[in-house]
Design a protein around this nucleic acid. Structure first.
Lengths: 330, 330
DNA sequence: AAATTTACCGCAAACGTTTGCAAAAATGAA
DNA sequence: TTCATTTTTGCAAACGTTTGCGGTAAATTT
């Protein structure tokens, strides 16, 4: 089936292409009668403007690029869901690419985005350090970049992230409220700034407001490691009354061990984590957590992007607030 | 910064645009010397072909559209991850839109895809019945559509899905192997064909090969309902020795109840589910399940898409095979 | 009735490519 | 040297829009 174009409409109506074009976008120069005729025919032939021709002409696509380490991830998928919603509302579509935490992929993805002339890029840096000059190249092309979650240090970039310190502090507060005496606090990859921030904030807060509480700190890189760590530290002689898990991954490991040993929550041990809420809801009793919502982060990122597109650069770093969600595990 | 175009390159090299274009794509008409010069300059000015101009000229974009009910979903996100990988390998990019199980969204999304002139669409129908003429419209425009997971009945469409019957039968086999006497089998929304298929296959198999085993069948629409159903049926007087969960959602509900009642798995009750594996791995003991891999399904869907694009229509329905993954819950 | 304004509409260029065809240059054969 | 090939390059149209500018006819003002 032939695609209907402006030209086709124009021929059928004995009008010029420009008139048809203007009629379709309600230009004041065109009479009401003509507009109606044009719209009628356009509908019956269901005309769809050719996005590529428009972009070529106007030099602006209505597509945003998104780079995440992995789509199949509880946090990132809700982030994506959020910007997808907002994008659609604002007439943008999304192009999503995953880096798999691999710098080479990240580079390739950026290249695709450049070629596609996306209107903007949402980027989560792949885990370990890399140079950011590819991102500079985007800026050179006037393509705004909003970094999220794992962001560069330099604050010439636009970035949104979780309020990591706040998260950790809220968790610490709740742990103190509980009157914990011995806490096992498990954090993630020590090389990641997110782990460092959370750990530091947590530790400082505990030392200041509950100096008598004994804290054991552990770093683990996976669910299995967290399980092993909990196993190891949870001996008869030195029992913890509270455990803190910095991420869902860690929580999963901890809970496995807790279930294996048939430890009673919250009676024998209190559990608290930082999470977006899905994993904590899986257990009985439901785990208490400090919420870090990928969804919220997505909304925030989108606001930043729009600001960026509308009026020049916004060089700020925004964070989404944390809040405690009460479960039954504390 | 100015975008480098063919025209710019041509001017600088004192060549025509067509020569530059051909040189860049290694056309045999162009001399080696010229090619080298062109490539050199193109590199140093890092020329990126304008995808929109190409599409406009060639009438073919290198983009696939994907419609899923929700991105934030254990099954769909792995499906997406799979086609993203394949797409990138084959020089395609992905545009992902979520329908939120809402027909209106689905329609809008399709419209965007038509406007973007995507090369193909991967579509998962939103849960409840709808008319498929929008999809016909895609075919009219020569845009192939590969349906996945929730697919239309009519087999003039190209579709890939899980081997639902096989899944259910494998589960039934394992339940029989276990020597179950009383089983509680919980299925999903009875309006969905996936629920019907699985239930029917399961029931038939049990009746045929283990007529003495007593099965109770329940349909639930959510995790919470599944939890309630298990609660209700698990009374002192009528204990089940095995429970079968048709989906992750159901498994989550069941496990909550099991944890709440502190029922011992697999001693007091055996648990088996159909899943992609993530949720079953969260518990202790690890739950046995029949694997339905979104990832595998994605790979299969991509093969179908490519076949569709290359050589005409392939009107087949393909299914990805199921396999049992042994946990410790049976 | 002439002059001015207003309301509509069309022309044509431009966006950056690709590609059929023709033209020019280089090479070989006679 | 001249003609026939072969190799290399350029011309120009086309893809479907948008938009500045200019034009015509009707409506309004003098």
């Amino acid at each position: 089936m032939m695609n209907t174009t402006l030209k086709l409409l124009a021929q059928q109506l004995q009008l010029s292409i420009s008139t048809v074009s203007r009629a379709l976008k309600d230009h004041p120069d065109i009479s009401k009668a003509t507009k109606e005729k044009v719209h009628a025919l356009a509908n019956s032939l269901d005309y769809e403007p050719n996005a590529y021709a428009i972009q070529l002409r106007t030099q602006s696509s209505k597509i945003f690029g998104v780079i995440v380490p992995a789509i199949a991830n509880l946090f990132y998928d809700s982030f994506i869901a959020a910007i997808e919603e907002e994008s659609r509302k604002n007439g943008y579509a999304l192009m999503i690419l995953q880096s798999s935490n691999n710098t080479e992929n990240e580079l390739n993805n950026l290249k695709i985005f450049r070629q596609t002339r996306v209107s903007g890029v949402f980027a989560c840096l792949s885990a370990h350090a890399q140079n950011l000059e590819v991102y500079e190249k985007m800026s050179d092309r006037d393509i705004p970049v909003v970094f999220f979650d794992i962001v560069p240090k330099d604050n010439k970039y636009t970035k949104v992230r979780m309020a990591d310190e706040r998260c950790a502090i809220i968790a610490a507060e709740k742990i103190i409220e509980r009157g914990a005496k011995h806490v096992l606090a498990i954090f993630g990859d020590p090389a990641l700034s997110i782990s460092q921030k959370r750990k530091q904030a947590f530790q400082q807060f505990m030392e200041k407001y509950a100096p008598k509480t004994h804290c054991t700190f552990v770093n683990t890189n996976s669910s299995a490691e967290a399980e092993a760590a909990f196993d190891k530290h949870y001996s008869k002689t030195q029992k913890f009354d509270t455990v803190f898990a910095m991420t869902d991954e860690i929580l999963i490991g901890v809970m496995k061990s807790i279930q294996a040993h048939n430890i009673k929550v919250p009676k024998e041990i209190g559990v608290i984590s930082i999470s977006n809420g899905f994993i904590p809801s899986l257990y009985h009793p439901v785990i208490s957590y400090v919420e870090t919502s990928g969804y919220e982060l997505g909304k925030l990122a989108f606001v930043q992007m729009l600001a960026n597109i509308k009026g020049g650069k916004t060089l700020s770093e925004l964070t989404v607030d944390a809040r405690f969600v009460e479960g039954k595990s504390m």
